[in-house]
C-alpha cells in the first residue's frame, strides 16, 4: 500500500511539474529531502528514547495495569458479551492501555491478540469494529511524537495542543462506536457482512 502511495505522489509531482514547469524545485527536493528525513529521525529518536524508557518504568511499576483496571467497566459497556474479567477483556484492556500510553511497539501485537480473542466470542464482528475505531481514534494521554515535531520546528509550547487532541480523539472514538453500534445492530453475528 505504501509503495502505491509513493508512486501516486511521484506521478502527481510529474503532472504538476509539467503544468507548473517546477522541475527545478522538484529536482532540488528530490536531492535534498533525504537529509531532512535523517534530521527528523534524530529529533524523533530523542523523544522516542525518553518516552520508551519512561513507559517501561510505568509498565514495571504497575501504572499500566492500574490503567487497565480503570478501563474494565468501560470495556464491559462498549464490547458486547464480555464480562470485563475474561481473557478477551484482558487482551482488549492491554491494547487500549498501550495506545493510551503511546506504546507504539505494544499497540499492534496486543491489538492482533485482542481481535483474535474477540473472534472466539459472540458478536465478533461488532466487537472487532469497536476495537478498530477505538484504535484508529488514537486516544493517547501524551502525543509524544507530534510534541517532538512541534518542538523541532520551534514551537514555544509543544504540548499546548493536548486538550484539543484529547477532545478530538474522544469525540471521534464516540462517533466511531455509535456508527459501529448502529451498523452492526443489537442482534447476533450470524448475518453476512
Amino acid at each position: 500500500m505504501l509503495g502505491v502511495l509513493i508512486v501516486i505522489m511521484l506521478v502527481a509531482a510529474y503532472l504538476a511539474g509539467g503544468m507548473n514547469s517546477s522541475w527545478k524545485d522538484i529536482s532540488a527536493a528530490a536531492v535534498g529531502s533525504c537529509t531532512d528525513a535523517v534530521e527528523l529521525g534524530i529529533f524523533l529518536a530523542g523523544s522516542m528514547a525518553l518516552w520508551g524508557g519512561l513507559m517501561r518504568i510505568a509498565e514495571r511499576s504497575g501504572i499500566a495495569s492500574a490503567i487497565g483496571r480503570l478501563l474494565s467497566p468501560l470495556i464491559r459497556r462498549i464490547f458486547k458479551g464480555l464480562n470485563g474479567s475474561d481473557e478477551a477483556s484482558k487482551a482488549v484492556s492491554l491494547n487500549l492501555t498501550a495506545n493510551l500510553l503511546g506504546l507504539g511497539n505494544a499497540a499492534t501485537p496486543t491489538g492482533i491478540k485482542a481481535v483474535r480473542m474477540l473472534d472466539k466470542h459472540r458478536y465478533a464482528k461488532r466487537n472487532t469494529a469497536m476495537l478498530t475505531v477505538l484504535n484508529t481514534a488514537s486516544i493517547q494521554l501524551i502525543p509524544v511524537s507530534i510534541g517532538a515535531l512541534r518542538a523541532a520546528h520551534g514551537s514555544t509550547s509543544p504540548f499546548e495542543i493536548m486538550p484539543a487532541v484529547l477532545v478530538t480523539s474522544l469525540a471521534s472514538a464516540a462517533v466511531g462506536c455509535i456508527f459501529a453500534g448502529v451498523l452492526y445492530g443489537g442482534g447476533d453475528d450470524d448475518e453476512a457482512d
Partner: peptide, 24 residues
C-alpha cells in the same frame, strides 16, 4: 525503533518533498 523508521522516511520524505515542490 527510531533508527528503523529512518530508511522508509528517506523514501517518503523524498516523495513528499517532490510532491510539495512540484505544486501538486
Amino acid at each position: 525503533d527510531a533508527a528503523e523508521l529512518v530508511p522508509i522516511l528517506v523514501l517518503l520524505m523524498t516523495a513528499v518533498g517532490m510532491f510539495t515542490a512540484s505544486g501538486a
